[in-house]
Simulated assay, not measured.
Amino acid sequence: MSDEVKGLIDVALKGDKKAIARLITLVENDEETAREVVRRIYPLTGKAYVVGITGPPGSGKSTLLDKLVKLAREEGHKVGVIAVDPTSPFTGGALLGDRLRMQRHSTDPGVFIRSMATRGSLGGLAKATNDAIKVLDASGYDLIFVETVGVGQIEVDIVKTADTVVFVTVPGLGDEVQAIKAGLMEVADIFAINKADREGVEMVYLELKMTLEFERDKWKELGWEPPIVETIAFTLRGVRPLWEAIKRHREHMESSGRLRERRAFRAREEVKTIIASSIARKVEERLASGEAGELIDEVVEGRLDPYSASQIVMEKLKEDLWR
């Protein structure tokens, strides 16, 4: 690690916003630097509570999050926000829509907002999101919100990042039942029906309630049944009850021991992801080599099947890994 990066870490850990922003940019763009940064700051992490906000496009996640940040600040929390935006097809960067919606918090010294691009990541979360969370955690932000990109499907990967998951939906989307079938019940700790002044809110509520009834034994075992909160973020209706539900879930997670279980699950998943990423990079290097190129030619010419070729590459890869 260069002296420049070491100095940047020292300044960021003192809470300097510019240094934090530069450090997140480094871990987002350079995998080797990210590894060194995380090694250095990891002993200082583990204090922040992470809340995931997910749901389909148009559900008002950003407006709702804006109001939740305000309530959190009123209670003295130092708040970090990571808004994972769709990648711009022109620049490869985040579209920054969420940062614009929360502009009024930008001058608050107790709030740090960062938009990150998905860059093709699956599950609606940027690959560097976990590292960015660690930077904010080590820098003293005790409450971190992660808003997923919202791609019209259930982004179950948020459970690998957040301690509490809030799913935001609205009446009239026409995909409530499909969303539930897609695995929503496996990840959501709290449901928010936003824009509750719209027609059809009762139907959405009943659909969620009925699905929760089907899973009653599961929730009874966990000691927590996800509440359904109706909100109108623009007028603040229901926002405080949603904030209180988030706090109650945190208390439940901490008192029941479930928080440690979830974080152990997340740590295991993160290690698996890092291993898979490292292996994928090694495979790419192998496939780019002349030797692997000959194998590909054999596959193209029909002299070798793809499974046999992949097995040969994997055997070579094992030699590289265990040297």
Results as ranks from 00 to 15, higher is better:
Arg104Trp: 00
Arg104Lys: 11
His105Phe: 01
His105Leu: 03
Thr107Ala: 13
Pro109Val: 09
Gly110Ser: 11
Phe112Asp: 05
Ser115Tyr: 02
Met116Ser: 11
Met116Tyr: 06
Ala117Pro: 15
Thr118Pro: 07
Arg119Asn: 14
Arg119Gln: 15
Ser121Tyr: 14
Ser121Glu: 13
Ser121Arg: 13
Ser121Gly: 14
Ser121Val: 09
Leu122Ile: 08
Leu122Tyr: 02
Leu122Gly: 09
Gly123Phe: 04
Gly123Met: 10
Gly124Cys: 07
Leu125Gln: 05
Leu125His: 03
Ala126Gly: 15
Ala126Asp: 07
Ala128Phe: 11
Ala128Gly: 12
Ala128Thr: 12
Thr129Asp: 11
Thr129His: 13
Asn130Glu: 13
Asp131Phe: 14
Lys134Ala: 15
Lys134His: 12
Val135Asp: 10
Leu136Glu: 07
Asp137Pro: 12
Ala138Gly: 02
Ser139Trp: 01
Ser139Ala: 15
Ser139Asp: 07
Gly140Val: 06
Tyr141Gln: 03
Tyr141Leu: 03
Tyr141His: 03
Phe145Asp: 02
Val146Cys: 07
Glu147Phe: 05
Glu147Trp: 03
Thr148Leu: 03
Val149Asp: 01
Gly150Leu: 01
Val151Pro: 00
Gly152Ser: 06
Gly152His: 07
Gln153Phe: 01
Val156His: 05
Ile158His: 11
Val159Gly: 00
Val159Trp: 02
Lys160Asp: 14
Ala162Phe: 09
Ala162Met: 08
Asp163Ser: 11
Thr164Asn: 06
Val165Lys: 10
Val166Leu: 03
Phe167Ala: 14
Val168Trp: 00
Val168Ala: 04
Val170Met: 10
Gly172Phe: 05
Gly174Tyr: 09
Gly174Pro: 13
Asp175Arg: 11
Glu176Ala: 15
Glu176Cys: 15
Glu176Val: 15
Val177Trp: 10
Val177Glu: 15
Val177Arg: 15
Ile180Arg: 08
Lys181Cys: 03
Ala182Asn: 05
Ala182Leu: 04
Gly183His: 02
Gly183Ile: 02
Gly183Pro: 06
Glu186Cys: 01
Glu186Pro: 01
Val187Arg: 06
Ile190Pro: 10
Ile190Arg: 09
Ile190Gln: 12
Phe191Gln: 01
Ala192Phe: 01
Ile193Arg: 09
Ile193Glu: 04
Ile193Asn: 08
Asn194Cys: 09
Lys195Gln: 14
Ala196Arg: 09
Asp197Lys: 07
Arg198Phe: 06
Glu199Pro: 00
Glu199Cys: 00
Glu199Lys: 08
Gly200Cys: 05
Gly200Trp: 11
Glu202Met: 06
Glu202Pro: 05
